[in-house]
């Protein structure tokens, strides 16, 4: 998997192709079609936000990108999704490897009921990234620093992660995701359970993380999408209605439905 990715990386650079692509993606939950014919490119080192009313399939699409839908009974994905031009749904692909490259942050902060240190160190240990204690210590410090949490927790790394405040927990989850050094981070409404101050903190963080990671974020808040993302995709009833530069989508939408949604006529 890694060998393939490395071999294809130079080509990708030459063609300047997007980090991830989705082509004609259909997703079914049993008989119900949740996503219809989605085509979307996700550019490297950009924040792509997915917006749309509840039940429009934006979270479903996000979960297709690291195959988290695999664990849902009756969920079926058709079409092609690639990461660095490699189909992530081809047979023989190791899902664990994929998820190490495409990390995820969830709606509700979900730290493991373990210490802050163990929360961060779990992923690196799992993938054998760091064996020595000192290497692990470094990863924990770097990840927490990147997530802007180091100063707040450096004196209580052995305290349980569940004892932190909601916003801190979410930043801990982001630190946990970046500890395995992924290429893409998927965020599923990461701020919906947080207050405005904690939200502002996370948004700032997303902007910083853009330097090193490719980020896809699902959000219910159009303001948030406008603030943090460079590219926005609007989903409605399982269709990808419109995707363009964030500024353009919010100021000059091409589609009537987008217009209706961002001006608050429905959704």
């Amino acid at each position: 998997m890694d060998a393939v990715a490395e071999a294809e990386a130079p080509q990708r650079a030459l063609r300047n192709s997007p980090k991830m692509t989705a082509r004609q993606v259909d997703v079914y939950y049993g008989e119900t079609k949740a996503l219809k014919n989605i085509d979307l490119d996700i550019e490297e080192n950009q924040v792509t936000s997915l917006i749309g009313p509840s039940g429009c399939g934006k979270s479903t699409f996000l979960r297709c990108l690291n195959r988290m839908n695999d664990v849902i009974d009756g969920c079926r994905v058709e079409g092609d999704i690639t990461l660095d031009d490699v189909d992530i749904y081809r047979s023989g692909l190791d899902v664990v490897q994929l998820r190490a490259r495409v990390g995820m942050v969830f709606q509700k902060p979900n730290p493991f009921p373990k210490s802050i240190y163990d929360n961060i160190a779990y992923g690196p240990r799992l993938h054998g990234i760091a064996e020595a204690k000192s290497d692990l210590d470094d990863i924990v410090e770097i990840s927490l620093t990147k997530a802007g949490l180091w100063k707040e927790v450096k004196d209580r790394l052995q305290a349980p992660g569940t004892g932190l405040s909601g916003g801190q927990q979410q930043r801990l989850c982001i630190a946990r995701a970046i500890a395995v050094n992924p290429e893409v981070i998927l965020m599923d409404e990461p701020c919906s359970a947080l207050d405005p101050i904690a939200t502002a903190r996370i948004e700032e963080l997303i902007d910083e993380l853009r330097q090193n990671f490719t980020i896809v974020i699902v959000t219910h808040s159009m303001q948030q999408a406008a603030r943090v993302s460079q590219k926005t995709a609007f989903f409605h009833l399982g269709d990808l209605v419109e995707v363009s530069e964030t500024e353009q989508l919010f100021t000059n939408p091409r589609d009537q439905r987008t217009q209706g949604y961002i001006t608050g006529r429905f959704g």
Partner: peptide, 20 residues
């Protein structure tokens, strides 16, 4: 959410069960 968290950082299903 604990299962998702573990899957999200790349644990296999067996690891999710035995570790968490």
């Amino acid at each position: 959410s604990i299962r998702e968290a573990a899957l999200g950082v790349g644990a296999s299903r067996l690891q999710v069960v035995t570790h968490h």
